[in-house]
Design a protein around this nucleic acid. Sequence first.
RNA 1: CGGAGCGUAGUUCAGAUGGCUAGAAUACACGCUUUGGGAGCGUGAGGUCGUGGGUUCAAGUCCCACCGCUCCGACCA
Length: 407
Amino acid sequence: MRYSHNFPKTLKQAPKAAESVNHKLLVQAGFIDQLMSGSWTLLPLGFRVVTKINDIIREELDKTGAQEMLMPLLHPKEIWKETGRWDKARDIMYQLKKDDKEYGLSFTHEEIVMYLITKLYVSPKEFPIKIYHFSTKFRYEPRAKSGILRAREFLMKDLYSAHLTKDDMYKYYWEVAESYFKIFKRIGFDVKIVEAGGGVFTENITHEFQVLSDQGEDTIFYCDNCDFAQNKEIFKGKKGEICPKCRKGKMVEAKAIEVGNIFPLGTMYAEKMGGYYNDQSGQRKPVWLASYGIGPTRVLGTLVELFHDQKGIIWPKAVAPYLVHLISLGTDEQAEKVYRELQESGMEVLYDDRDVSAGEKFADADLIGIPYRLVVSQRSGGKIEFKERTASNSELLTLQELLKKIK
RNA sequence: CGGAGCGUAGUUCAGAUGGCUAGAAUACACGCUUUGGGAGCGUGAGGUCGUGGGUUCAAGUCCCACCGCUCCGACCA
């Protein structure tokens, strides 16, 4: 991509109102734009990062046998009445009326999934059913905040699984937990799996995937010796106490950002919506439902909170919008050739071909945060100057050496 | 919803005790020059001063109401 045609360009200054790091840097570098409080556009650079995040999620979930689909966001009131959540979730659901018919904007999809399963499944042999989609969620937040971390409209990947038995539900539940762990590791996070309550979703203990960060609005307690961790809402002890699980480590208190969560919902949805099957003995039994979410746009913000310096963003390679940032300093013919060759080798290149000063190109490269910076100039002779975003020194390489190094 | 701050050009801001055709920087367009850390000169375009009402000979400036954004709190799968 030629940066001269990238929409939009970086800003000289971050917006005045921005205080959180993800808000400042993502806006200044041209990844996102705010429409109103809690509502954001993913600009081309931001959308590329989210696409990378989604691709990783998709790849790992497909390995568990899950199938991708897409469900609607405009829901009839009646389906939410069936589970009682039209009234119970009134505070977070956008509800609207048009010509005397009432609708809700989706804040989750359990009701729709249960409706689909009840309506479309043919035989118990089809279970377990594992379906997911990436789509927008609308949630009325009393106070949207922290840049893109707490929005009223945001992107979510939600997976739903339906099972004949509780054991089978939990078997897959832990398989997804493992899958989530891999996803976050690939993205670049060191996540903690934290026990939590289920809120408006379930009475059961659920699990959150938390990334430690001072910018987080959740408070968690975790053991410094074993994997025990609980969020503030359900943890009964205090920090510094002996871990109730391993009896060896001490409990640590920390701020964290919740990037994913999983819910073993049980049979409530099936019972309220008629999701039954006949088992071998001819008995009528409800199916077991679980749901699992990851917020790709919140992941985007969390990445910036974690990976940045004074000059800008530092994208992990797995999710960077481009892998290399090519800069030409007054040697356009050579840079054009390098650009062409890099593209032919399948490299994702952002090529700054603008007629602006060297300093501006360097500053923008640091701000945008692509992992590798390449400079072609008089000074580099026939070679290409290679520098990692986090390094202070560069080295001169031929194209072949460069390709070998990066791949 | 309670508290605080803010709202003037695309962006960041200046416009004191009310006073003339509302300014700067930056970004943008054109020309020339320039290319290793946000270059220089010139020309040009760009504004319902958040909205509505009020006070006044006169309001960006004072008063009232409302709207919006950010932060703290309440809330939060």
